[in-house]
Nucleic acid binder design. Structure first.
Lengths: 211, 211
DNA sequence: CTAGTGTATATTGTATACAATTATCATTCA
DNA sequence: TGAATGATAATTGTATACAATATACACTAG
């Protein structure tokens, strides 16, 4: 077995995370240690570590002595996630508008163009990736590492729920992204915050209905 | 060895968490697996699990192949934590005011009286415990499990920083708690939110200075 | 005397083995 | 027939042992 710097556990976690977020493993699917161990060609120890990491992120449920499964997010929990995420995206957009980071803004502009293109062509893989990039870079522009970290996890968990609507809502999504970025560039904290918060709520409504 | 339901890892995590939050283990202290293993009388496996859990909570730093240590929170990170926590305490107070939960409010009233008593007598242990209870119950009143969970972790991490000031600021703390609860009871969402947010910022300023 | 190198030691990462618990399912008794 | 029961299998929890890596420090070369 070849060894590299990031521990096996880390890499297993990465692999599992991807398989969950791309819906190759679906909510409720059991994650049996022995089984994963064979499948990925490592012993159970790194598998266990990975499962704990993912459990901490909320992507996996683990019950003592009964094993792990892909998290199944109930509509109630989804609403809770949305409420928190909407608030934090608002805070972050406010901070981004305040801090005014030209380099990141330039990158965001590029992502925006690519996103609009993908929205017209309807390429789902690209849309998912670009949407992630947009929110990630925006979080970077907020310059708050704690916020960045929490939002990353919240985004993953909500994406587990909203995945179905990525294609359908693509146009609105990217038009809203555009408005948010404009407000950030203008340094209009209040408007950036309101738009970002509203953006999350609207994306949620498309899947959960108004609540 | 006696076995009980919560796994050893869980109990080790609990034990370590307490020792960190009570400052028996200080920021920067190394957490050597073998050493903890002997000290707590279990093998290294549960120790590792516990360290991962605490790392996910931000109470412990672990670097691959170099081991774990009690998290040392820089002033910059502390400011970031405060910014996020202030916002979320605001959101939660708003939700608590909206949802109007008589039973929890009754409990909060009791904690408040006990807190004011402790503030006058200056008993630090009681102050820490009651402060935790107040915020925990308030979080419960918000009825958002995601928010509750995130705030618990943020509170632990900020408490690591603010610990020094618990006694000094006790009077103001509890007077502010009282105002927040009043706004919650009155169902005044906006006022509850503003007060809760301001409360966190003020507690932070006592330690970090205005930022 | 300092920089660099190599070896010893400490520590973490992983694998294997076994113990404890939970789930499954056939069987028995009412 | 259906619920309770017990044996068996599947699975997780923990311990021990070993491999890989990082750190510390003495030693050599310049």
């Amino acid at each position: 077995m070849k060894l590299e710097h990031p521990s096996l556990g880390q890499r297993v976690a990465e692999e599992l995370r991807r398989s969950i977020l791309t819906n190759r493993r679906k909510p409720g699917d059991r994650l049996v240690e022995e089984q994963l161990s064979e499948e990925l060609g490592v012993s159970r120890i790194p598998i266990r570590e990975a499962l704990r990491v993912l459990a901490a992120e909320g992507l996996v449920d683990v019950q003592p002595r009964r094993g792990a499964s892909v998290a199944d997010i109930s509509p109630e929990v989804a609403r809770d996630l949305v409420e928190v995420r909407a608030t934090l995206e608002g805070l972050n957009a406010r901070l981004a508008a305040r801090h005014h980071q030209p380099e990141i803004v330039a990158e965001l502009r590029e992502v925006l163009t690519a996103g609009n293109r993908a929205a017209r062509s309807g390429n789902v893989d690209d849309l998912v990736r670009l949407n992630g990039e947009f929110h990630d870079k925006l979080a970077e522009a907020g310059r708050n590492t704690i916020l960045w970290d929490i939002m990353r996890v919240l985004r993953e968990r909500t994406s587990l729920v909203f995945a179905v609507n990525t294609a359908r809502r693509a146009r609105e999504d990217w038009s809203e992204h555009s408005e948010i970025l404009a407000a950030v560039i203008a340094g209009d904290e209040e408007r950036a915050a309101v738009l970002a918060t509203r953006h999350v709520h609207r994306a949620a409504e498309a899947t959960l209905g108004k609540g």
